[in-house]
Each structure stands twice: as structure tokens, then as C-alpha cells.
């Protein structure tokens, strides 16, 4: 088990390193981009001003030196200053992270609480009308685009019936109830897609497991159906589900950007969207690094979970 984990950690860092190079190059992609980005906020900046700015941000140095300075500062916790807000980027992240994390917790809550039971029931009631309607629901959940679902839900639950606020965010410390109301709808919209995917995977994976010989063996031992399901079928059926949850994690990050923007939630996604429009590259770079780090971390956790769920993975 130990060499397995060590190898995975090594891989994770290697990937993170390569991604950081890519992100860095993306941020410096050509002079024109930079000039355009800088000049939009300064009218027709003359070349002397631009040159001065370049020196200030270290853009006059060779690329590898720039990369080295950027990455070493980044690791030390100096993520630079926002071009637009003139604030410390790390501070900005720390202020907005809890909001996105809350949205995220809501996403996990909704996708798990809908996805797993739906998939389970659909598998157990296979080929019945219950299965058919749950499956239809799941496919709808998967296919609806986030932005459209957001518009429809805002109309239904905030405009037609005033249950949830149409947008905005109330901090938990200010009013816990309003905080939950403000996060419920956006996180639900985020969770819909994953809930659909998870329920589909749980259904098919559980059905596959239930058709295996070792399930018949379990019945032949005299176990009741419930015990067979919980002790023998559940664990192996999770293996493919863990994979899609890992993939959905990445999807959720993309979705969070859109949802935060639509619901005016001042989280990381909204900050990054604004930064992209403004060409605020220190923020963009930091966001991308965190997003990549997050996905790599999740993949690492998924690998560990495989080892936990399936002993055959452990021996190599």
C-alpha cells in the first residue's frame, strides 16, 4: 500500500508542475494580449507607461526567470497584486474561499442525497414504472444546461413563488436562515447534473454486481436479501461510482463559475470571471493553479479510494 501511495503523490506533483508551466505560459501568451489588457484601463497608454508597468510586474525579464520568480513567490504565499483591484491576490482568495466552499458543500449534499437513493431504488425496482421515472428524471438532470435551469428556477421559486431569493448572498454570521436560503437554489442547480450521473452509475453498477456469481454464493450461504445487498453488493458497486464522482468534481468547478455569476454570489468563480474579463492575470493564474490542484487532489483521493474498495488494486 505504501509504495502505491508514494507513487501517486509523486505523480500528483509532477502533473501540478507541468500544469503550472502551462498556466504561466497562458498568462504571458504574447505581448499583444498584455498591451490590450493594460491599455483598456488606461485609455491609449503610451509606450513609456507600458514599459514602466512591464518593469514593475517583472515582464521585461526572460520567460524562465519570470516563471521561477512567479512560482517561488507563489509557493511562499506571495500571489502578487491584482492589476485591477490593487489588492493582495491571496487575501482576495482567502476572503472568497468560504463562500465557494459553502456552495460546494451544498453541491455535495444535493448530488449525494438525490443520486444515491435514486440509483439504489431504480436498481432494486428494475424495469418497473418507478425505475422508468427515476431514469427519466436522471436523464433530464444530466441534460439540462446550468444556465437554463437557473433561469427557470429563479422564475419559478423566486419570482412566481417567493421561496428563495432570486440572487445575492447572505453570510452565515449575519443570518443563518437567509444564508441557507440564498445558497440552496444555486447549489441545487449545481448538484442536479451530478445527481443524475451518480444515480445512473449507481443503478447500472449495482445491477451488474447483483448479477455476479458471488452474489449467488452469498444467497446460497443463507443470507437474507437485505444482508446480501448491504454486505456483499454495496461495496463493489461503489467502484465505478467513485470514478464519476471524481470527474463530476471538475465539472462542478466549471458550473460554480456560471452559477456564482448568475446568482451574484461573491465567491471565487465570480472573482475569476471578472478577472478574465479584465485581463487580471495574477488572479487568473492563481485560480487556475488552485483549480488544477483541486482536480489533481481529487484524482489522488479517488485512487486511494480504489485501493480501499478493491484490494486487487493494492497489489501491483
Amino acid at each position: 500500500m505504501k509504495p502505491f501511495i508514494l507513487k501517486r503523490i509523486l505523480y500528483a506533483f509532477l502533473i501540478l508542475f507541468l500544469v503550472s508551466i502551462l498556466i504561466f505560459l497562458l498568462g504571458r501568451a504574447g505581448d499583444p494580449l498584455e498591451k490590450a489588457a493594460l491599455s483598456t484601463r488606461m485609455g491609449m497608454a503610451d509606450s513609456e507607461v507600458v514599459d514602466a508597468l512591464k518593469v514593475q510586474f517583472g515582464l521585461d525579464r526572460p520567460l524562465h526567470v519570470q516563471y521561477y520568480l512567479w512560482i517561488s513567490n507563489f509557493i511562499r504565499g506571495d500571489w502578487g497584486k491584482s492589476l485591477f483591484y490593487r489588492e493582495d491576490v491571496r487575501e482576495m482568495f482567502i476572503n472568497r474561499l468560504p463562500i465557494t466552499l459553502e456552495l460546494f458543500a451544498g453541491f455535495v449534499f444535493w448530488s449525494a442525497i438525490i443520486g444515491f437513493p435514486f440509483g439504489f431504488i431504480a436498481a432494486l425496482k428494475r424495469n418497473s414504472w418507478i425505475d422508468a421515472s427515476l431514469t427519466t428524471g436522471a436523464v433530464i438532470g444530466i441534460s439540462i444546461p446550468v444556465f437554463w435551469q437557473a433561469i427557470v428556477m429563479i422564475y419559478l421559486f423566486a419570482v412566481a413563488v417567493h421561496i428563495f431569493p432570486p440572487s445575492g448572498y447572505v453570510p452565515f454570521s449575519e443570518d443563518p436562515w437567509k444564508n441557507l436560503l440564498s445558497i440552496a437554489m444555486p447549489s441545487f442547480i449545481l448538484g442536479t447534473h451530478s445527481a443524475g450521473i451518480i444515480s445512473r452509475y449507481v443503478r447500472s453498477s449495482l445491477l451488474e454486481v447483483l448479477g455476479q456469481d458471488y452474489i449467488r454464493t452469498a444467497f446460497a450461504k443463507g443470507l437474507r436479501a437485505k444482508a446480501v445487498l448491504l454486505r456483499h453488493a454495496f461495496k463493489p458497486s461503489l467502484i465505478p461510482v467513485v470514478t464519476v464522482i471524481g470527474l463530476e468534481w471538475g465539472y462542478m468547478l466549471a458550473g460554480a463559475f456560471i452559477v456564482e455569476y448568475m446568482f451574484a454570489i461573491p465567491g471565487l468563480g465570480r472573482m475569476c470571471m471578472n478577472a478574465i474579463f479584465a485581463g487580471d492575470f495574477p488572479i487568473i493564474q492563481a485560480t487556475l493553479i488552485l483549480v488544477a490542484g483541486n482536480i489533481i487532489l481529487v484524482n489522488f483521493v479517488v485512487d486511494l479510494l480504489y485501493g480501499f474498495l478493491d484490494p486487487r488494486v493494492r497489489v501491483q
Binding site: 456469481d213 458471488y214 454464493t217 444467497f219 446460497a220 443463507g222 463493489p236 474498495l309 484490494p311 486487487r312
Partner: peptide, 21 residues
């Protein structure tokens, strides 16, 4: 009765044993 008074030995021990227990 199953597994207690009457037991069955299946033909494919590869697939008839639970792989993750």
C-alpha cells in the same frame, strides 16, 4: 436451510468468491 443444512459448491471459484472481501 441454505448454507446451514444444505450447502452448494459452485463451479467457478474465480467468480463465485467475493473479490473484495
Amino acid at each position: 436451510i441454505r448454507g446451514n443444512h444444505m450447502a452448494m459448491i459452485f463451479q467457478e471459484p474465480m467468480t463465485a468468491l467475493h473479490p473484495v472481501l
